[in-house]
Amino acid sequence: MLKLFQAQAVAKEPLGELVRADGQPQAQKRRTSSERDKIVRRIFVAAGLFSLVIMGLIVLFLFKEGVGLFATVSVSDFLFGQFWYPTYDPADFGILPLILGSVAVTVVSSAIAVPLGVGTALYLGEVAGHRTREILKPVVELLAGLPSVVLGFVGMVVLAPLLQEWWDIPTGLNIFNASLMLALMAIPTIASISEDALHAVPQELVDASLALGATRLETLSRVVVPGALSGIGTAVILGMSRAMGETMVVLMVAGGAAQIPGSIFDSVRPLPATIAAEMGETPFGSEHYHALFAIGIVLFLLTLGFNLVAAWVSNRFHQKGAATL
């Protein structure tokens, strides 16, 4: 088939043969360059579409392995059931406590990470001198790469005993500790993206504001931050999405109790922690196995939601007109 195609390509070669610098006739050895270009182009288009294919495969396989559960458990019992006892007989597959556990650590960690992350970005973008910024920005980006298992380890081994001692609570492995560690993961992400957004605000706008007599802070709060709001919003949502999907920290530090949380010193078992903790001991193809994939579907849809909102925010609230960012 390929040979045939090649032969056609040669036959289409116009009068005479292109002769390459080394004297060999090009057309006899290869396709004409324009034919080859078309094929190459197709390969690259396919590679470009590959990410979409992967997304499709992720959805396909999560559902393929996860929907089996809903033969025996209804969707509403699954989502709103209050008890997660997957190994009991009969088993309970209610993930409401797991969802609320995830929501709790995401909300508390955002409450810590957003002010600190945005504050760091404001310092880097507006207060720090050029040299300081050139050094500190890469440091912050470097810290974004800290492996999550390391922060999980620190939360578990170092922070948990301290918290337990300081506040005389039954366990240091709880929402507060996990949120603190998740915040450390999310802060560099939030700071780095927010700072890019601040940096992208056109200098003319800043100069105009300063020239009108506004102080740097007034310029910052009324010109720069409003101009960078879509970027900062995107950063915050991506940071939250990262906290919700993060596995190792909540697996090691959140305590692992599948209960609906009542205070920030309660132990919880967020969605990713449940999957990671239980998949290893689950027989392939069992109801429990399907249930963990069903949790994967929920987690995937939640983070997809966050990411789509982030994409929408960054498109929708872009400043328009002469000052388009």
């Binding site: 990410s51 987690l299 994409a311």
Partner: peptide, 14 residues
């Protein structure tokens, strides 16, 4: 962008 946001544990399941 969304592939970048898929939680790592979901990649594990995949």
């Amino acid at each position: 962008a969304n592939l970048a946001g898929v939680p790592s544990v979901v990649f594990g399941l995949f």
